[in-house]
Design a protein around this nucleic acid. Structure first.
Length: 455
RNA sequence: GGCCCUAUCGUCUAACGGUUAGGACAUCGCCUUUUCAAGGCGGUAAUCCGGGUUCGAUUCCCGGUAGGGUCACCA
């Protein structure tokens, strides 16, 4: 059915929830391994539990994978559309005496009795080799004769995975290590339907900060939530890859291509790893630095408010503040926070502030005594210094013009006052940058405005 | 509880018998043309415990402890 020796992997989520980061990483490891080995990856939706599977989750999973850049070569297949296939194999093993139907009471309603199909457990030791864990051995006796189908038309997970993996020619099963204990019973089923055993690789789980299983109560776990928060897919990919795998070098910032080239199961960690947002943010910033300017601008535009985008000078000022924004954010979502904290508005309009703020905090005064009236004089001097400059000035010119004066009167005092007069903020870029962004006319206007504020 | 798996700084990890146990993020301090950010330099910080094996254990073995997974007519 497939060319011999070709690697076939699969990513089979069940559409009973959003694609969370743990599953996304499983998909990623499948993807990296498949690409590296020139194989094919199958995408299969395991929706045999019709009661819990929904179209909404299905769409979310597909969308998340697309956003992350994890592509697949076959699928999506849906198990709900393959009932005939399972039925065939079910009949086959029942006829062979390897499974049997049994009339039992319904666990949900003891008054009803109905038939289920149980697998006839050969009760033996099953040994398998795992790319990450090495040799693992189980005694299947305590599994008893486990149920593999609700009835002939309604097969259960363990049976459908095995049939599908066989039918689709899957050579490598790469999944979370919560499946380790499931593996022996699946091997038993494989042997019953005469399917070859795939190579297994069980990767460790991603943990919450308290080392428990990661779930919704630990904050954002859905891939699309990270998109909404303004993370770059390449950063999330990079981070997920590093969680449980490392290249053996000091390199930490990777593109998908680089990961594909370097990924290897021998370097996959055995223990679970805690998902740490701080490092993800750092990586996100690193990937932002790597972005081309135009792409960065497009991304910023998505998060800027309508108010700012409709400002008269917007298109003129945007290119100048882009680098300032880039320096200050680690996720695009933080642009919204900047706007809330008025860290952007002052580029476009006259800031509001109390005149006392023009006085720098004592620790920057270097023993010099200042009061508001001397600040007023300083601001006038600054105006006089800037007046002769050309309208279109850059920050180094302003700096050269003002620096000697600032040295003389006290850098902290002069520069703080100027910066505050231009921004109205405790924190902002330096006054030279600010002046060059808003231009000479506006700079003079704001200095004059500050002077007027002081009685 | 049975079975299975795991165990290096707070976090992600390097070391595949011999290292001052390395790096990154975070944190702390200092520096850089005032603040913030960015950047630079430096500091604090780890081999879970107990036995073996060995001239020598983070590394190999055994036991304990802790954590996780799994024991569904969910996947």
């Amino acid at each position: 059915m497939t060319e011999k020796g070709k690697v076939i992997t699969r990513f089979p989520p069940s559409p009973t929830g959003f694609l969370h980061i743990g599953r996304a990483r499983t998909a990623l490891f499948n993807y990296l391994f498949t690409r590296k080995n020139g194989g094919e990856m199958i995408f299969r939706l395991e929706d045999t539990d019709q009661a819990r599977s929904t179209k909404k989750f299905e769409d979310n999973i597909i969308e998340s994978l697309a956003w992350l850049g994890i592509s697949y070569d076959q699928g999506p297949f849906r198990q709900s559309e393959r009932t005939e296939m399972y039925k065939k194999y079910l009949k086959q093993i029942i006829d062979a005496g390897l499974a049997y139907t049994s009339i039992e009471t319904d666990p949900n309603d003891p008054k009803i009795s109905k038939e289920v199909i149980r697998f006839k457990n050969p009760n033996k030791k099953v040994q398998f080799s795992d790319l990450v864990r090495g040799e693992i051995e189980f005694d299947t006796t305590d599994l008893k004769d486990f149920v593999i189908a609700r009835n002939i038309n309604d097969p259960l997970y363990h049976f459908t995975v095995v049939v599908d993996d066989f039918e689709m020619g899957v050579t490598h099963v790469i999944r979370g290590d919560d499946h380790i204990s499931n593996t022996p019973r699946q091997i038993l089923i494989q042997e019953a339907i005469d399917a070859p055993r795939p190579i297994y690789a069980h990767i460790p789980l991603i943990l919450a900060p308290d080392r428990s299983k990661l779930s919704g109560r630990h904050g954002a776990v859905g891939v699309t939530e990270y998109r909404e928060l303004g993370y770059l897919p390449e950063a999330l990919i990079n981070y997920l890859a590093l969680l449980g795998w490392n290249p053996g070098t000091d390199k930490e910032v990777f593109t998908m291509e680089e990961l594909t080239a370097e990924f290897d199961f021998s370097a996959v960690q055995k223990g679970g790893a805690i998902f740490d947002l701080t490092k993800l943010k750092w990586l996100n910033k690193e990937h932002m630095k790597l972005m081309p300017e135009d792409k960065f601008e497009m991304e910023v535009m998505k998060y800027l408010s309508e108010e700012i985008k409709t400002e008269a000078k917007f298109s003129m000022i945007l290119p100048k503040i882009l680098p300032l924004i880039k320096e200050r954010i680690s996720t695009f979502g933080e642009i919204k926070e900047m706007a809330e904290k008025e860290e952007l508005q002052y580029f476009f309009s006259m800031p509001e502030y109390a005149p006392e703020s023009l006085l720098c905090p004592p620790k920057f005064r270097k023993d010099k005594v200042v009061d508001l009236s001397s600040i007023k004089a300083i601001l006038s001097d600054l105006k006089a210094l800037i007046e002769p400059l050309k309208e279109d000035f850059d920050q180094s010119i302003i700096k050269d013009t003002i620096w000697p004066y600032a040295e003389e009167r006290g850098r902290g005092i002069v520069l703080w006052a100027m910066r505050y007069a231009l921004s109205g903020q405790e924190k902002s870029p330096d006054p030279f940058t600010l002046a060059s962004v808003i231009g000479k006319t506006e700079t003079l206007k704001r200095l004059e405005n500050a002077i007027q504020k002081i009685k």
